[in-house]
């Protein structure tokens, strides 16, 4: 349970981190809050030769008003988000989900940039940012680029992040008063990974549903949009939810593992999509 020995560098700035990534190449790994990385290093599933610690980059720890969206610094801790008033007011699903991750001690360390960079399809925040159609700001040697969440998560633990790039910011839309949200996570025990999670962002329109954006956790190699449910709900009356949710698992490819069989995950996706959309409509 002791990690393989590694060299340790402290990044003094984002530019310095990029420089260090260039120097050490794919032998190195960025360390943010460490609550995905350190456990897998302890299990020796990962053995980077060099860790580049971003822990001093307090300038990446913020929530700012971006007009129609919120800008969240990559080193913002989950616990910061769980208690942030601007997040609660404009994009409550992010604060709610941050407060759901791990436990308070984990939330004190874990960061939004870290959990997105890790890109685990069983993680909750990737689905939430996907359902919000948020974007991820990435900085590299050639400057900054903004990547849509849909393009960021590419495969199991694989993101669009280049070898010499650092996530610096996450952008999420401000939700208007007609938009409700829900994140539903099903697991056996409180700290477990989601067997299945459902993030729903639903816009109400004249007593019926305007549009719905739904993203599923742990139903494939990346967060997956439940597109057939979204299409069925577009402009639909509220009582259409139960039937629409029956296609939530369409186009998914859940794994069978010790937590749940693929068939059970499909069942859960249908059940929790219905409940998530209903909760979003009432919120």
């Amino acid at each position: 349970m002791i990690p393989v020995a590694f060299d340790y560098e402290v990044a003094e700035s984002v530019d310095h981190a990029i420089e260090l990534l260039g120097q050490y190449g794919d032998e190195s790994k960025l360390l943010a809050g460490g609550h995905s990385l350190i456990p897998i290093m302890r299990l020796r599933l990962a053995a980077p030769a060099v860790l580049i610690d971003l822990g001093k980059l307090e300038n990446l720890r913020y929530v700012r008003d971006g007009g129609d969206h919120l800008k969240i610094g990559a080193m913002t801790r989950h616990r910061d988000l769980a208690f942030n008033e601007m997040v609660a007011q404009h994009c409550g699903i992010v604060g709610y989900t941050a407060g759901l991750l791990g436990d308070p001690s984990v939330q004190h360390r874990g960061t939004i940039g870290g959990t997105l960079s890790h890109g685990d399809a069983s993680g909750d925040m990737p689905s939430v940012i996907t359902a919000l159609e948020g974007s991820i700001v990435v900085q590299g040697p050639n400057g900054e680029r903004v990547v849509k969440a849909a393009d960021f998560f590419q495969d199991y633990l694989v993101t669009d992040l280049g070898e010499q790039e650092v996530v610096t910011e996450v952008r999420v839309p401000k939700l208007n008063g007609n938009t409700g949200w829900s994140y539903k996570k099903f697991s056996r025990r409180s700290q477990d990974w989601a067997m299945v999670g459902v993030a729903a962002v639903v816009e109400r329109s004249n007593g019926s549903i305007g549009s719905a954006r739904i993203a599923l956790t742990a139903m494939g190699a990346t967060p997956l949009r439940a597109t057939s449910v979204e299409q069925a709900l577009s402009g639909a009356p509220r009582d259409a939810v139960a039937e629409a949710a029956q296609s939530a698992d369409e186009g998914t490819s859940p794994a069978s593992d010790s937590a749940a069989s693929a068939e059970f995950r499909r069942h859960l996706a249908r059940v929790w999509t219905k409940r998530a959309v209903e909760e979003a409509l009432s919120r």
């Binding site: 460490g34 609550h35 350190i38 984990v106 360390r109």
Partner: peptide
């Protein structure tokens, strides 16, 4: 609070 087994 933090978990000192998950911090170098």
């Amino acid at each position: 609070s933090v978990k000192s087994c998950t911090l170098f």
